[in-house]
């Protein structure tokens, strides 16, 4: 016997998980879309399906449907929240094209010290990045 509530909850979790994987596998290559409309729509649909599954399940809903639908809703909500955090506070940059680099010393990952004087006579792409995870 097929249970529509269980089918909806499973579909919801599958949709949300597939969207996560599809989006985040593009992160290491820096290849995520500027406006991830498809991912947002899919996560929204996942939320709706999860809610629908709980409505269809009625009361008491048992264990499987709340667990599946709840997980889907949690991951969908986390995805949508993460997107709201994407803006960076630009505008405080202290250097501009034509300026000299501001002198600094910092340790390399080998432990040896680096000083900006080492950049003289060389062409360099100096990158500030968020760090590893």
């Amino acid at each position: 016997m097929t249970r529509p509530d269980l089918a909806l909850a499973t579909l919801s979790l599958l949709l949300v998980t597939a969207t996560w994987v599809n989006y985040f596998r593009r992160v290491p290559s820096g290849n995520v879309p500027a406006r991830p409309v498809g991912s947002i729509a899919a996560q929204g649909a996942g939320l709706v399906l999860a809610a629908l599954a709980l409505v269809v399940a009625g009361f008491p809903p048992g264990v499987a449907v709340p667990v599946l639908a709840g997980s889907a809703a949690l991951f969908a909500a986390l995805f949508l929240w993460l997107l709201t955090q994407r803006a960076t506070p630009v505008g405080d940059l202290r250097v501009a094209v034509g300026d000299r680099v501001l002198a600094f010393t910092a340790p390399r990952d080998t432990g040896a010290a680096f000083h900006t004087d080492e950049l003289l006579g060389k062409r360099t792409l100096l990158k500030f990045f968020r760090g590893s995870w």
Partner: peptide
């Protein structure tokens, strides 16, 4: 942490190009 920012520096230590993102997902 740092805002993802790229500075292209020439042999004289002069910055020739600046690129900064207003959306950390995009580099």
């Amino acid at each position: 942490m740092a805002i993802p920012t790229s500075l292209l520096v020439d042999e004289q230590g002069v910055i020739r190009w600046v690129d900064q993102t207003d959306d950390y997902r995009l580099r």
